[in-house]
Amino acid sequence: MQDIRKALYVGTRSDGRLIQRPMSPHLQIYRYRLSMVLSISNRLTGVVATGGAALGVFWLAAAAKGPKAFATARKVTGNPAGQLLLVGWLASVVYHTVGGIRHLIWDSGKRYDKEELNKDGPVAVGVTAGVSAVLAVGLLGVAAKRARALAKAGKAS
């Protein structure tokens, strides 16, 4: 037997024969709720944030390795596809942080009633969208400005 939980799905019919018991209904049977999307999103963004952190470490390692490796890293962070990736990482980290703060609040025994949960869900989405947008525009703007200034200074000297 591959999975010991399968043992729990074997039952006996009234005539004594062994049968496979029905499983509980899966996701698609339930009515859509925001809370279930937010729950799985916390996991998904956690995985994406880990991938982004891996890229961040490669960026740091490139800086440590030397100018040539760092120039390659800058090619990635400087082009639109790379920046889309960075914004995705940023938004994932922001949502995972918001979701994580909610989890810490729940752990302290607060905001865990059904009504409060349903009220806080849309707030979490709004905060994530707002903070992500402000940080993304701000960071990309600052980076582009500094890169342009550096390129200009490089040409002048």
């Binding site: 800086a63 030397g66 100018p67 760092f70 120039a71 800058r74 980290v93 942080t97 994580g100 703060i101 989890h103 810490l104 940080l135 701000g138 960071l139 990309l140 600052v142 980076a143 582009a144 400005k145 500094r146 890169a147 342009r148 550096l150």
Partner: peptide, 24 residues
């Protein structure tokens, strides 16, 4: 680790504002 990542990652975001687009 989650609680300690709150100030640490905030620090990193602030640093990225100081460092975004910088050269080697």
């Amino acid at each position: 680790t989650a609680a300690s990542l709150l100030p640490l990652s905030t620090w990193f975001v602030v640093q990225m504002f100081r460092l975004g687009g910088a050269d080697h």
